[in-house]
Design a protein around this nucleic acid. Structure first.
Lengths: 111, 111
DNA sequence: AGCCTTCATCGACTATCGTCGATTCTCGAT
DNA sequence: ATCGAGAATCGACGATAGTCGATGAAGGCT
């Protein structure tokens, strides 16, 4: 048996890692937790006021969370409203998925 | 209602993040996947041969995985045998845990 | 039109991370 | 005691990521 048969495919490993990277930062954890407590969408300004970090930093983290569809954004006039994507929360891979070799969920499919 | 009441405690957020950081790297994903496929413990040398990265790099990643008790190590003579910690795999937080505010599992408790 | 609010983007700085080669340490064997 | 194999640690390097302030772009208001 070849060594490469033993190793998880590198591309698949990186896709898995990109999921976990999205939650591998304390500020992003706080943001998603905040969005989950308020059931309603929040504007960037509200998140900035609550999070204690700068506006550009919040915008940066929201973009990362939106890239994996963990949050959804809706433009409303001059403001952007962000909310948790429940579908993406439930398809987020678990540690058991990793060790069991479950196929990596594709972010855009979690709409 | 105070703003700090809305935000997840920073220390708790960092503990959550430390869990996800452990799996936020493709090489570590490959290592845990490799350890899970072989049911038996593997020595560092075996992991090095299969992973395709240097010995010090593998040792570094194994240390990170061992810090959150994701893998367990047993000294056997001159070699170290690593294996998956099934208990830790099942107590690893999910995305749903984060958004629901479930208390962060403490790594040393997942023995 | 002009201005103001809101957010995204840019540029720079710093800190952290992943990787490597070299060294050191721990044991077991001779 | 010495040697050698296996693994951890160290030091350095480049790359990546988080944060900030400043700037820019889009839309509402007077």
């Amino acid at each position: 048996m070849n060594v490469s048969m033993e190793l998880l495919d590198r591309a698949a490993a990186e896709e898995y890692a990109s999921w976990f990277k999205a939650l591998a930062d304390a500020t992003r954890i706080q943001i998603v937790s905040l969005l989950a407590r308020r059931r309603e969408p929040m504007s960037v300004g509200e998140i900035v006021a609550a999070s204690g970090v700068g506006q550009s930093t919040v915008s940066h983290h929201l973009r990362i969370l939106a890239e994996v569809r963990f949050v959804l954004v809706e433009r409303r006039g001059t403001s952007s409203l962000y909310r948790i994507n429940e579908n993406c929360v439930s398809c987020f891979p678990t540690a058991a998925d990793v060790v069991m070799g479950k196929p990596v969920p594709v972010a855009p499919a979690c709409e």
